[in-house]
Each structure stands twice: as structure tokens, then as C-alpha cells.
Design a protein around this nucleic acid. Sequence first.
DNA 1: GTCTATAAAGCGATAGAC
DNA 2: GTCTATCGCTTTATAGAC
Lengths: 206, 206
Amino acid sequence: MTDAPDRRRAILEGAARVIARRGVRGLRVADLAAEAGVSTALVYYHFKDRRGILRHALAFIGDRADRYTAAAEEGPAVRPADPRELLERTFLLEFQDLPEVRENSTAWGELRAHTVFDPELREELAAAGAAWAAEVAELLGAVRPAAPAGAVAAAAERLTALLEGLSVRWLSGLLPLRHARELMREAVRVEVDRLGPDPDATRRDV
Amino acid sequence: MTDAPDRRRAILEGAARVIARRGVRGLRVADLAAEAGVSTALVYYHFKDRRGILRHALAFIGDRADRYTAAAEEGPAVRPADPRELLERTFLLEFQDLPEVRENSTAWGELRAHTVFDPELREELAAAGAAWAAEVAELLGAVRPAAPAGAVAAAAERLTALLEGLSVRWLSGLLPLRHARELMREAVRVEVDRLGPDPDATRRDV
DNA sequence: GTCTATAAAGCGATAGAC
DNA sequence: GTCTATCGCTTTATAGAC
């Protein structure tokens, strides 16, 4: 009836929701099937086994996260492309009380946590992490063009690692959203300042 | 034969090893029993149920972490109590390739990740986290006595959250130990500098 | 492609002997 | 205190009809 790619997609969307709700290790094939409105047998028809479901679901979630990050970077189009604003906004995107953001953050957190015990997922995570760090490094480079590449790369790694730490605290209810956002914003300022003086400062106050 | 406290301890040590290897959610009572060299029935004789085992195991691991943190803060006794050194050393303690450190870090990472889906553990984690943040804030205060308390508290929160993010990357093999240590060390410097000038600087170079 | 039904295995927890 | 044996529920995975 329904064609295969659509069904696969529906199953993966169901998997994303279940993972966000119960975690990677709390995912039961029966739950996922119910969530997608299909039988467990159909899940096994489309995917080899539980592990395969997980692999595809995590890849699917990764793609989705890329997409909403890219979309928000274009922004409300009103704003001039101030690189510092852009940098800050990129990080704050991860701290929003929207179902899609929560789902993605939760699922990524699970993926990272799970990789500690399942090295098979390492490569996939490493690729995604490197792309994300490179993107941040590029934004940082735009804000402080004179900074040495090594320092920029290190700052990008610290900021992305901090984001992950804060994200877990927020999602587990240990840190209010507002506070998480403030800490993240301030960290961006600290790291940017560390990379040298604002090259555009003359316009304003020198 | 063996007296009860020893057996309990042996079981908890086994639990710590199994948690480090398979995670909190990957812990099977049978595995833990095998690891400790006892039967599953004996585990249930000493602990009410799986949940109870977990609670005690995490408390046990927490105590151990306290102990090695405290011990290392006293240091090799050779060194004068330079507060900045002390601060740096406290953070770097978490990044060592020793079984006990790996075990503790892994277990705590699991606990944090698990709390996202199981709010019941939240209070225990919140208490431990607050104590740890307060300790760091105190060390920061010693390094920069003139800094405002709010800024010190925020810096402590960022540094501890960063530690957690870097720890997960290290444990999952995404970040070499050496690199994690460098990033952490530099972050401490960045945050300390942000809190103001060194009050002892006159002795050296002014 | 999709379902119902069920086999097979995994796992928490307890009974009862010693 | 400690063991062996096992119960009973949950969960993965497959068989076979449509």
C-alpha cells in the first residue's frame, strides 16, 4: 500500500520519538512499532535487527539536526550578517523548549552516552562532531580573522564540549533553560575575547 | 564464611566494574554476581532489588571519587599550596588513564545520562553536582579573591559542565587523553583570567 | 508489504536445601 | 550466608497467511 521509503521514514520518525522519550537503551521494538502505527514484523522487514534500527535512526536524527541548524543560520533575513550574532545564535539554537529541539538534543545526548559502551558508533559520531566543530571554527574565524588557527580550533572544541555538558544538565532538569542560555552566551564571549581584540572596534570607541 | 560487610563491598566493587564496562542500563544482576564471584541469590540477599543495588553502587562510587579527589588535593606534600595549581590539578584528576578513574567517570557519566529519563535520580545528582560546583567556586575564589561571587559561581558552572562534556568524549574514544587535558587546562586559564588580574602579579613582573 | 501468532532467549526475582 | 534450581514476565526475532 504505502511505498517503502515512506514507511521506512515513518518508522525512523517513530524511533526518534521513542529514543527521546525512553533513551537508546530504553527503546523497545514493540514501542517503536506502535509509535509508527505498524507491526513489529514490519519493522524487521525494513530493518535487519534492533541494532540496524538504531544505526539508521541515529543517522536520521543527525541529518535532521543539520537541517534545522542550517535553516536557523539563515535567520529572519532582517538581520545583517554580524558574525558574532550568528555565532551566538548557532549555540543558543540547541537551548529551546521546542519538541523538535528537545527530541534532537535528547537523541544526540543518548548517542554520545551510548558510544562510551558501543565503539561501533564511534565513527559516525566522530564525523558529525568534526563537521560541527569545523562549522563553529569557521564562525569563530569570521569573528576574529587575525586569531591563529590552532587557538580557534581549540576554542571551538571547548565551546562544543561545553554545549554538550550544559545540554545534559538542562535535559535532566538540573539546570533551568534560562540559566543554561546565559552560561552558554557568556562562554562564547569569554572565548571570543580570548582570541584577541575586536577588529571592528575602531568604528565604535577608539 | 566471609563476613557480611566484606561481601557487600565485594559486590559493590563488582558493580562498579560492570557499570564501567556496560553502563548503568547494561548492568545485569547475573553479570555483577559473576564479576564478584557469587551467586545471583546472594546479591538479592544483600540488596533488596536491582534498583537498590544501583543506588548503593552509585553512592559507593561517589564516596570513592570524593576520596581520591581529597587525597590528590593534599598532593605530593612537596608543593606549596598555590591555589591556581590546586584548581588545575583538581580538574585534571578526572582525566587519567587509571582503572579507578575510568570507572568513576564512566559511572557518573552514565548516571547523568540516565537522569534525563529517570527523574528519580535527580536529587542525588543535584546534591553531588552542587557540592562539586561549590568546591570549585571556593578554589576559584582563592585564586581571584577580588572577583564578584556571581561571576565566580558562573565560571565554576561552566568549568564543571565543560569537564563533563570533555569526559564523555574522552571515554568514548573521540578525544585523546592528552588533548582533553590540554583543553581543560586552557579553559581553567581562560576563566581565571576572565575573573580579573592576578593579585600576586607584583611579586613577579610589575 | 503487512499482519497475527508464536518460538526462543533474556532477565529479574524467589524457593528451598545446606 | 550461600548455593542450585527454577518461575514468570518481557523482549527480540521469525514463520507463515493474506
